[in-house]
């Protein structure tokens, strides 16, 4: 019996020590270093201009107006935080790609995109405009999807297509060394620049 209680005491001590080292010290170290060296990134990459928080660079927002660039399909939900304020969030759909429900949804989205972009360059719709991302929150679209919407936005805003092209160009991230990543356009940044909020 003496041996058994000895092991239990040792085990309890181990759990306590490891909890303090891994649960507290490790977390404090990572938080401290991140806050010191990557302050903006570690706090959610929030776009803050003149003290106002205009969005998160990494999270999509819903855009429906003709004068704005549209992003990936979102499944919006609303919830109330502890202060009683209503907040928007989004998630994935989890529908089987073979289900009738999904087929119907895609048909509706295609019809909507076609109708909204009568002057688009091509009849082939970039697929990222009618599909939801894995998180429902991806902030980027392909360059093709951005250019597809170019005529509509330029007309709605009465600006030249060249100026519009320049804005898209400014918000495009290119492949690194030609292989890493995808060429993509940050939708929120485009719209902030179009509204003149972001330089």
């Amino acid at each position: 019996m003496k041996k058994k209680s000895h092991v239990i005491g040792k085990a309890a001590g181990m759990v306590l020590t490891m909890t303090i080292i891994c649960g507290v010290l490790y977390t404090i170290a990572v938080t401290g270093i991140s806050q010191l060296f990557f302050h903006d990134k570690a706090n959610g990459s929030v776009i803050e201009i003149d003290g106002k928080k205009y969005g998160c660079e990494l999270l999509a927002q819903q855009f429906t107006g003709d004068e704005y660039m549209w992003g990936r399909i979102m499944n919006l939900s609303v919830f109330t935080d502890q202060d009683g304020n209503a907040k928007m969030y989004s998630g994935p759909s989890n529908l089987s790609s073979k289900s009738e429900e999904y087929e119907k949804l895609i048909d509706e989205r295609v019809a909507k995109i076609r109708e909204a972009n009568p002057d688009a360059d091509t009849d082939k719709i970039p697929e990222d405009l009618v599909t939801c991302s894995g998180s429902g929150l991806d902030p980027d679209i392909s360059l093709a999807a951005a250019q597809y919407q170019l005529p509509r936005i330029a007309e709605a805003r009465g600006m030249s297509e060249e100026d519009m092209e320049a804005v898209i160009d400014e918000c495009t991230t290119h492949k690194i060394l030609g292989i890493f990543g995808e060429e993509r356009v940050n939708v929120l940044k485009v719209n902030l620049m179009l509204d003149g909020i972001m330089e």
Partner: peptide, 30 residues
């Protein structure tokens, strides 16, 4: 420690704050 710092440098949050509220450019209705 290494992995945490590398991904934090790319934009994975690491803060005691649970959440942040940001303005929507276009309001949405439910």
């Amino acid at each position: 420690l290494v992995v945490a710092l590398v991904i934090a440098s790319q934009g994975v949050p690491q803060t005691m704050k649970a959440a942040e509220s940001v303005e929507l450019m276009e309001p949405v209705a439910f």
